[in-house]
């Protein structure tokens, strides 16, 4: 598609982001989850994965799904600057998705964490991978964090001992609704990393190949009796 002047002016300037090196995590049930960065051309399968959860009110799945859908669409259509999306896939089937963006080379703005397969702490692993990408790989000094679900937020807040930056509100606020933000600093990350972040690298080509072609989940624990129509 030719990019006309108008379209050009609608697109945000983009930083050149280092790629996230894929890793593999053995989950408690013995299954292996490949965590890797999503390519732009894979957005369709992601949106299809997220869409059914937009109607699930429990645990704020509806708002997380709706916002994440829009954020990923925004990334695809060049309407969000410096966004990245990581996916956890078990035998190619999407088990969870996280997304985030960079404000500049030093500051991250964490967006969402969505777990589809539950009971295996997949959300915790993917959230940790997201923070790993921000701080260890992209070299950010800090990441701003909030969450829609009080449970989820409290978990990050307590487990990561996030710094409360709400005293700097509204000058400093999170993009998700302009709420006072909590922040993970490099120092805090170094303190919890060993207990929170895992995964084996490099991933063998055979194992990486299992996640080559991402598949939408065939079932959702959040939606009993789900059938993909």
């Amino acid at each position: 598609m030719a990019i006309d002047k108008m379209e050009q002016s609608l697109r945000p300037p983009q930083l050149d982001l280092k790629p996230f090196p894929a890793k593999i995590i053995t989950l408690a049930n013995g299954e292996e989850m490949v965590v890797r960065e999503v390519k732009r051309e894979e957005v369709g399968v992601l949106l299809g994965t997220i869409q059914p959860l937009m109607g699930v009110q429990k645990d704020f799945y509806d708002i997380v799904a709706s916002r994440m859908y829009a954020e990923i669409l925004g990334w695809f259509e060049y309407r969000v600057a410096n966004e990245f999306v990581l996916v956890g896939a078990i035998n190619g089937e999407i088990a969870g998705i996280v997304n985030s963006r960079l404000i500049d080379g030093k500051t991250g703005m964490s967006y969402h964490t969505m777990t589809i397969k539950r009971g295996l702490r997949i959300g915790a692993q993917l959230f940790a991978a997201k923070m790993e990408h921000h701080i260890d790989i992209l070299g950010n000094d800090e990441v701003h964090i909030v969450a829609e679900s009080p449970n989820g937020f409290k978990r990050w807040m307590i487990e990561y001992a996030l710094e409360d930056r709400s005293s700097r509100y509204p000058a400093l606020h999170h993009e998700l609704g302009g709420v006072p933000t909590f922040t993970l600093t490099r120092e805090l990350w170094e303190r919890v990393k060993a207990d929170k972040c895992t995964g084996t690298r490099p991933v063998s080509p055979e194992k990486l190949a299992t996640a080559d072609k991402l598949k939408m989940p065939s079932e959702y624990p959040q939606i009993p009796g789900f059938k993909r129509g």
Binding site: A28, G30, Q125, C197, T198
Partner: peptide, 23 residues
């Protein structure tokens, strides 16, 4: 409640176990 089997490799032996199966 939790009808997912777990394996000793995953929750103890593997190098990811200390994070998967946290204190």
């Amino acid at each position: 409640h939790v009808r997912v089997p777990c394996t000793i490799e995953a929750i103890h032996d593997s190098e990811n176990a200390h994070v998967i199966n946290n204190y």
